[in-house]
Amino acid sequence: MSVLKWTYEVDGTDFTRAGEASSNLKKKLRALGIPAEVIRKVSIALYEGEINMVIHADGGVITIEMSPDRIDMILADHGKGIPDIEQAMQAGWSTAADEVRSLGFGAGMGLPNMKKNSDEMRIESTVGVGTTVYMTVYINGGPKKADA
């Protein structure tokens, strides 16, 4: 065994269930004895990702790969895609509908928060096809983060 692998289906139709994957993963990481700071980063990054998948992409699939030194999170959806990733990464930028904003979401902090809480993050997106976000959080430090 080199890694543990878990997959979570994210239901895009039920807003109240967003966060189930991060909550479930958190319990597992706790049972593994992962440091609190790592768990915190992983759960925040994943939770923001889940919310994005529900708000913008009608759900998708999350794959978690965990090895003793790192946790990789792959969030894949078949949503409308992101036309300009650089713009989407800017704090405050949001295309969320008003009804979502009225619930307190859509503040444009989702992607910036995911970046802030992961050690590495990469986005692949094709308009009309979907988006895949790759995030990595290192356990016990790992290689230094390239940019802060």
Binding site: K28, R30, A31, L32, G33, S67, I139
Partner: peptide
């Protein structure tokens, strides 16, 4: 913190146990 819920002291062992 008192980690009473963890499966093993060693992360690698804990992962094997979790599997």
């Amino acid at each position: 913190f008192v980690p009473v819920l963890k499966l093993d002291e060693n992360v690698w062992e804990a992962m094997m146990k979790m599997e």
